[in-house]
Amino acid sequence: MTAVVQDDALAGLVDLGELIEAVRTAHRDLALGRAAQPVPATSSTEGATIVLPMVATSHRLGLTVVKVLTDAPGNRDAGGPVQQSTVVVLDSRTGDRLAVLSGATGTRMRTAAASAVATDALARTDSRVLGLVGAGPLAVEHVAAIRRVRAIDRVVVWSRSSSRVAAFGSLLRQRERADGVPEIEVVALESPRQVVDAADVLCTLTPSRVPIVEGAWLRPGQHVNAVGAPPRPDHREIDSGGMARATVFVDSADVQLHDSGEVLLSLRDGATTEQHFRSELGAVLADLAPGRTGREQITLFNSIGIALQDLAFAALALRIDPAGERGRP
């Protein structure tokens, strides 16, 4: 029988530290030819809603995942979720359906894990201040994940909604107690510019359609994780100047050049060329390409999110090891 696992169960199945290592391995596998990550085909449905089927295969684990993501901006006004997803896990050798997983928990956790992997590979080791532009649940997960790879002692945060910042603070304290880690200082700031000015590591976590961070604000030595923009070619959080000014690393170059507004709009504006987006995180992790090469360099991980990261989460949730042995969720 196929296991069907809902989000409430998934939240307790995967350890964040183990997930960070699994995502690191998945990106390395992609660079070494041990995994396949094809470009997804986007399908428009009613109104502005899109359906994005995302596929990835791990040859090492013998798994394929098919994640079906919907992005429905119209749900926001009704108080519903804008993004929803379901992950189908298959045995890539036999085609057997192993499990169907709700996507929200896994997407949140693997996204933060990917930012932690990129931060560990690219940010200066003396980074201490984490800046968050956006204060939703993904912000809490990012604090937890990035604290695993850097000795962060202060968080600065901005959101358009003061109530959301307050909720973020409350949820973060709950998470710290659950994780058994000391409370970290949290400071709410009045603008994205102030967050950029203060941060050593900056995470942008908003579904913005127009740039919310300008390249002129970025500071020498800073690392940026651009995370929040949905996989739509007309959405971006970082302006073209920022993409041009930073040394950019991506999760998948082919997927980025197909779906990322940060990439496509900066190309349209003539600020960058396709070569600017060919440095993949996995190649850095596999020692096939350089990462940060100087203290003053501005590095930027453009995280559009790939199905191979969902596969890494699913393998841990289902307790699937490289020998192909499977446990039960």
Rank of each mutant, 00 (worst) to 15 (best):
A144Q: 14
G12C: 03
R209C: 02
E262R: 01
A123N: 07
R108A: 15
P137E: 04
F249W: 07
V5H: 12
A199G: 05
A145Q: 02
T119F: 05
R150N: 08
P211C: 04
A22S: 14
A151Q: 13
G62N: 07
S208Y: 08
T299M: 12
G221N: 10
L69M: 00
G74F: 00
P231F: 05
A3K: 10
V117N: 12
A48C: 00
I50M: 05
S127P: 14
A226P: 14
L189A: 09
V155I: 12
A3D: 14
L285I: 09
T125D: 15
V149Q: 12
S43L: 14
G103M: 07
V224F: 03
A199H: 12
L122D: 01
V210Y: 01
C203E: 02
A315T: 04
E141Y: 01
A216T: 13
R60E: 15
P290C: 01
S303L: 14
G180A: 08
P192W: 06
V250D: 03
G282F: 03
D234E: 13
L132I: 13
R147M: 11
D8K: 04
L132T: 11
E176T: 11
L316F: 11
D120L: 04
L171R: 09
A226F: 03
S191N: 09
G294T: 11
R245G: 11
A26L: 12
P220V: 12
P329Q: 05
V117P: 11
V51M: 14
Q174T: 06
L316I: 09
L205Y: 14
R193G: 01
G180F: 05
A3W: 14
G215P: 03
L69Q: 00
E325G: 06
T247F: 01
R328S: 13
G136L: 09
A317E: 11
G221F: 12
V87D: 11
G17Q: 09
T273I: 02
T57G: 02
V143D: 10
R232M: 03
T86C: 13
A113R: 01
G106W: 13
L171C: 00
R219L: 08
V195M: 11
L316G: 09
